[in-house]
Amino acid sequence: MTTATRTGFAASTRSTAGRRRFEGVVRIILLACSGVAVATTLGILASVLFESVVFFREVSPLAFLFGTQWSPTGSPPAFGLVPLLAGTLLITLIALATATPLGLFSAIYLSEYASPRLRRVLKPVLEMLAGVPTVVLGFFAALTVAPFIRQAGTAIGLDVASESALAAGLVMGMMIVPLISSLSDDIINAVPQSLRDGSLAMGATPSETVKRVVLPAALPGIASAIILAISRAIGETMIVVMAAGLAANLTFNPLAAVSTITVQIATLLVGDQEFDSAKTLAAFALGLVLFFFTLALNIAALRLVRKYRQHYD
C-alpha cells in the first residue's frame, strides 16, 4: 500500500448515512409500486361493490339472484340472473368440451411422443393461437363459424339460431386449447422421469404409462388448469359479444341463442349512460358476480397447484 491512503476500519466513521437515507426512500418507492397491485384489487372491489349496493337498493338481491327473466330495457325491466348464468354455463361447457380433450391430448402428444423438432414447430403454433386477439376470434365465430353451423344444421333439418351458443362455445374452446395444453404440458413434464421408467420397465406401453402413471400423478395440476380455463371462459367477452346473442333465453339447447354475463355488462355500458339508472348499475352487479366467480376459481386453482407442488418437492 504505497499510494492509497488507507482509512482503516477501526478509524472509519459512518460516512454513509446519506446514502442509507436515500436508499430508504428508494425502498419505500419500490414498496409503493408493489402496492399498486393491491390498490388495483381494492379499486376493482370498491368500483363493483359501491355501484352494486346502489343497484340492490332498487332491485332486491333475491330477485336478482333467482329471477328467471332478464330484460333490462323492458317495461317493467327484469333483472333475473338465472338465464345469464345458464347461458354463461352453456357456452363454458361447450368450450370446455372442445378444449379439454384437444388441449390435454396435445399436451400428452407433445410431452410424450413428439420429437424435439416437431415440438419446436408445434409449440409456437399453440403460442400463436394463444396470442390471437379475442376480437379476431369473435369476428371469425360470427362471420364464418356461425353461418357454417347454421347451414349445416339447416341441411340436416335442424333449427339453428344465427347466433348459436354452439358457434361461440366452439371458438371459445379453441381459444382455451393453448391455455390447457401449455399448463398441462408443464405439469406432465414435472412428473418425475423415474415414475415413467418404472412403468415402462415393467413392460407397460407408453400410452398405458401415460394413462396409469403420468396422468394420475399430474391430475391435481391438470384439474387446476381446467379450473383456470373455466375462469377464462366465464370472463371472456369479445367472442360472446360478437357471436352470441343479446336475448337472454333460459335454455340449454346449444343451437339456440343465449346471452352471457359479460355480453350484458358490455351492452349495458356501451353508449350513453346515466349513472343512476338501474340498467347501468345492473352491469356493476353483474361485474360483482363475475369477479367473485373468477376469484373463487383462481384461488381454487392456485390451492390445487400449491398442494401438488408440495407433494413432489
Binding site: G8, F9, A10, S12, R14, S15, T16, R20
Partner: peptide, 21 residues
C-alpha cells in the same frame, strides 16, 4: 472484531465493512 472494533456494532454499516474486508 476488526482492529478491535465490533463489526456487528450498531454504528457499522455492512456495506462499509465490506470495503475493508
Amino acid at each position: 472484531t476488526l482492529d478491535g472494533r465490533n463489526i456487528n456494532g450498531r454504528d457499522v454499516d455492512p456495506v462499509q465493512l465490506r470495503s475493508h474486508v
